[in-house]
């Protein structure tokens, strides 16, 4: 029998504390895994774990409560902003965020997100946009790109028949109740880093007492898109960003400071 000495290697990166050990049900290369990891990293770095209440949506991300080691409420389809409104109002000390896909937020839940934003609810919204209904088999969503083939638009989305993709974050940015609205992507490590900064800013704004903060994240659905994971990432960085440009649409709390990123130290 041998006695093991402590590991002397200097740690650069490890799985965040608030990400559970469970293996996720997501398909290989799914963007949800990366975004879950970013949320877990931020909540860990900002010491928000004990005070956070997440609101999970319906869709592939319905099991987010199994993967993030924080308190969670599951909401009916599209109603996460309404549930989060209630949670935040009865627990004003809590940090509250919703985690919603595009089928949830931009389709069935459009009314809820618009009115929660109009009321300026003090919640953070993480909006994962992969332009498709992943869980039900890759059907066309309101966010599907023009010309994109899905199982319910096999010849590609046509504007005459199915209308145009909804730029929901730009729409919400018009409302004065929205303190921060931005769009990032997960197409490569530098984009992931910028998206993490946007999420940090959104979380800081809630902590500083601002109104709704929303970060849309362009994500992938390799299986639904009929691509490999690396091809799907390239598709986001070359095609999807043309319809959904990246950047900060509005920051109405410019005077409020942003917390420090440990990577920038």
């Amino acid at each position: 029998m041998t006695t093991l000495a402590p590991d002397t290697r200097r740690l650069i990166y490890e799985r965040p504390e608030l990400l559970t050990d469970r293996s996720s049900h997501y398909c290989p290369g799914c963007g949800h895994g990366i975004i879950h990891r970013l949320v877990a990293e931020l909540l860990t770095e900002m010491h928000l774990g004990p005070t956070t209440i997440g609101v999970a949506s319906v869709g592939c991300s319905v099991f987010a409560y199994d993967y993030l080691d924080i308190d969670f409420v599951e909401s009916p389809h599209g109603r996460a902003p309404a549930v989060a409104t209630g949670v935040r109002r009865v627990r004003p000390d809590a940090f509250v965020f919703t985690y919603q896909g595009d089928g949830d937020l931009a389709a069935i839940g459009t009314a809820e997100i618009v009115h929660a934003a109009a009321r300026g609810e003090r919640i953070s919204v993480i909006f994962v946009n992969n332009g498709i209904y992943g869980m039900t088999g890759g059907q066309m969503a309101p966010t599907t790109l023009l010309g994109q083939r899905t199982t319910s638009s096999p010849a590609g989305r046509e504007a005459n028949l199915a209308g145009y993709p909804i730029p929901i974050t730009e729409m919400l940015a018009l409302l004065p109740g929205v303190s921060y609205a931005a769009r990032g992507s997960i197409a490569d490590p530098s984009a992931i880093g910028r998206t993490k900064k946007m999420l940090r800013r959104a979380f800081d704004i809630q902590l500083a007492g601002g109104g709704m903060s929303i970060v849309e994240i362009l994500s992938t659905c390799p299986v639904g898109w009929g691509m490999t994971a690396p091809e799907a990432m390239e598709h986001v960085s070359k095609e999807v960003v043309l319809t959904y440009p990246l950047g900060v649409m509005v920051d109405r709390m410019k005077d409020s400071p942003t917390s420090k990123d440990k990577d920038e130290a």
């Binding site: 290697r9 200097r10 740690l11 650069i12 990166y13 490890e14 799985r15 965040p16 990400l19 293996s23 996720s24 997501y26 290989p28 290369g29 799914c30 963007g31 949800h32 895994g33 990366i34 990891r37 490569d188 490590p189 992931i192 880093g193």
Partner: peptide, 19 residues
Amino acid sequence: TSCALCARICPDAVFTVYA
């Protein structure tokens, strides 16, 4: 080189990186 790009792109957080 322990650049950790793999850890930053991994959807399943399988990497632990040491300097």
